[in-house]
Every structure is written in C-alpha cells, then in structure tokens.
Design a protein around this nucleic acid. Structure first.
Lengths: 121, 121
DNA sequence: CTTGACTCCGTAGTTAACTACGGAAGTAAC
DNA sequence: GTTACTTCCGTAGTTAACTACGGAGTCAAG
C-alpha cells in the first residue's frame, strides 16, 4: 500500500534522486523495507519526512541538525527528538527575526533609492 | 569624522577582517578613501552597508545578488538598484513563506512526538 | 528469457562562503 | 627612528550541500 521507489519519492518531493540518496546515507531517511535485490521500498511516511527535511533545508536549516533529529525520530527516542525539535524551533525563530530585520533595512534602502531617483532626473 | 580602519569596521559589525576583505574584493563594500600607503579608510555609511549585507546573508541571501545590488548602489544607478531590491524583497518573502510552512510542520511533529512519548511510558 | 529502464554503491567534482597563511609594507606611540 | 601592531595582497584550505559518473546488478513488461 503506497509503495514508492527512490525515483518516485524524489519526484514527488521535487528533488533529484541524488539528494535522496545523500539523505539516505546521512540517515535522514530510510527505506521502510528492501527487496530481495536490495532495492529500497518507501512509504508515505518517508515522503512526508522528505518533504519536512526539504522545507527545513530551504528555510536555511543545516543537515547536521536535521540528521540528529531524524535519527532520534527513527530510534525512536522521544526525549532526544524533543530536544532537537526545540533547537529547530529556536533556529526558525532566529531566522524569522533576521528576516524581519532585513525587511526593515530593505524598506529604508528602497526609500533612499527612490529619493536619489527623484533627486537627479 | 567617524573614520574606521578595516579591523574596526569588522569588529563593529561582528565579523572577521577576512570577511570584510572578501566583501571588498567582491565589490560589496569599498573604502571611502585610501591613505598614501594604500590603507582603506571607511566611514559610517560603510558600516551601515556592512550591517545590511550581514543581515541579508544571515537571512540566507546569496552574495551574488547582494553584489549586484551594492554595485548598482555605488554606481549609482537607481534604476538597476531598484531591480535588485525588488528581487531581494521577493527572496525575503519566499524565505518567510518557507519558514512559516516549516513552523506548521514543526508543530505537527511536536504533537506527534508528544503523543508517542505518552503512548509508551 | 530478453530487453530496456531503474537502482545500487563508491567515488569524484562543483559551488558558495568563509577561514587561514605569510611576507612585505604601512602606521602610530614612544 | 625604533618598536609593536596593523594592513595589504595573493594564494590556499575548509565546510556544507549538492551534482555527476560509471559499472554491476535488479526489476518488470512483453
């Protein structure tokens, strides 16, 4: 039920097969099972995991933190997972603050550029 | 009036001298003047510029975009600067959306972990 | 059972941003 | 002017994340 190959998983998450393989090696992801020949078999949970990891990466989170979290999730070690989740939350907040600060500076710059633009026509 | 050396500039922006030098080479930053011996002399504007660049970098903006923007600002080419500013704004919005999405997934994960935690005591 | 596409795995290359090294020369305090 | 620190500049190394290569093995459709 809902079995994915590596390439299907990659495609559904909008990622190259190489990236999936990289994540498998790092322990961010793992096959739900393997065929007799050693091929990875993935399920919907794996896809969700991959999507989560990608969202985090695109938000600027490092793979090292994500690796620790995913390993704890797979252990499963709820205590440790909670720790890394907290760290991630903090990271997200830090990023959001950085972005908010940047937005302010951007507005200031925009005003300045507009002023210059009007000053020498 | 408010003259900075490279090291003072770096220190005030919370950055290593190497980074400042890197930015100088890339054209993100430039000395207001140079001494007879070739030493860079910076002013308050340079510090503001450096702080802006750092905020952007920490928000996940690439140095290439920033380079184009800073060069336009220094040209000064208000038209082109506006273009890169717009691109930057877009990038900031994209990042903010990515972070918001991640936050949602994080909450879901947190709930799941908490549920597991309670499920096997 | 053959054929064509997919997968495995290790290894290697790329890019971005930063970090480090080292010697020649400048600067400033005495 | 000597001394101690700073700067210049080129070059080189590091790290993170991804991208690419290639040959051997596996799968599934006919």
């Amino acid at each position: 039920m809902n079995a994915y190959t590596v390439s299907r998983l990659a495609q559904d998450a909008g990622v190259s097969v190489h990236v999936v393989r990289d994540y498998l090696l790092r322990g961010l992801l793992r096959p739900a099972a393997r065929t007799a020949g050693g091929y990875g078999v993935f399920d919907a949970d794996a896809l969700q995991r991959l999507r989560f990891v990608r969202a985090a990466v695109e938000a600027g989170v490092g793979l090292d933190v994500l690796t620790r979290l995913c390993r704890a999730l797979d252990a499963p070690d709820a205590g440790e997972a909670a720790v890394w989740l907290a760290e991630l939350r903090q990271l997200v907040e830090w990023r959001q603050r950085a972005l908010a600060g940047l937005e302010v500076q951007l507005s200031a710059l925009r005003a300045e550029v507009a002023r210059q633009d009007g000053a020498l026509p």
